[in-house]
């Protein structure tokens, strides 16, 4: 919770803080101009609902080729947005601290640890997750190679490994086994399928297919 400065507020003042936020909000001032009962309702039961709405931000993203409009809390990570709100659970949470790579997605073609970035930081960007890698029923060459070389065991790190592997090849960092190992080291596989993952990446790289 250390990443959330809100936790440092004296706990009992929290509701107070929310209300004063509401009072000061210029939008709510505008609301004050509407008929009394509405405002009354807002300050009573709807308080939380209205507050929640004010605490959210609009966000537009293109995910796997599909355009989305959201209203999200600024503290929501891209990873939690994908997993908990869009149910795109192919992107995995392995640490939430940017240390394991299980959450790797592509943002405008770059590999990114989605746990380490807030969703709202990606306004207007194109996100590709593991679910968007295959071409319909036809697997991406990297996915094919992972199956063929058994580049996984439990499969939990796999989506992150594959997204990273695709980026690794695209970046031009897959020219040798040693280079692959170096540039894939942000993706931990606790099952230890490393040798097979490297073999899969090499095959894709050497096969020269478009990735």
């Amino acid at each position: 919770m250390a990443t959330n400065p809100e936790t440092d507020l004296p706990p009992t003042n929290h509701d107070e803080a929310r209300r004063s936020f509401l009072r000061q909000s210029s939008l709510l001032t505008a609301l004050a101009l509407v008929p009394g009962p509405v405002v009354h309702a807002a300050s009573a039961e709807l308080d939380e609902t209205v507050a929640a709405a004010f605490e959210k931000m609009p966000l537009k993203l293109e995910i796997n080729g599909k355009k989305y409009k959201f209203s999200v809390e600024p503290r929501t990570t891209l990873l939690d947005l994908l997993r908990e709100q869009l149910h795109l659970t192919g992107t995995k949470k392995g640490c939430d601290y940017g240390q394991c790579g299980a959450c790797t997605v592509h943002v405008d073609g770059q590999r990114v640890n989605s746990c380490l970035s807030f969703a709202v930081m990606h306004e207007g960007k194109k996100i590709t997750t593991i679910e968007g890698l295959a071409d319909g029923d036809k697997l991406h060459p990297m996915q094919e190679a992972f199956v063929k070389h058994d580049g996984f065991q439990c499969g939990y790190c796999t989506p992150g490994q594959i997204m990273s592997a695709v980026a690794c090849v695209r970046e031009g960092h897959a020219d040798s086994e040693a280079e692959i190992r170096e540039y894939m080291s942000g993706n931990i596989c606790r099952c230890g399928a490393y040798a097979n993952i490297v073999a899969a990446i090499q095959e894709v790289k050497q096969g020269g297919q478009k990735v």
């Binding site: 795109l88 679910e131 890698l133 697997l139 996915q143 199956v147 063929k148």
Partner: peptide, 12 residues
């Protein structure tokens, strides 16, 4: 090849 390989590489 693993019978569940496809599920694992597609995030399914």
């Amino acid at each position: 090849n693993r019978v569940d390989g496809r599920l694992k590489v597609t995030g399914a």
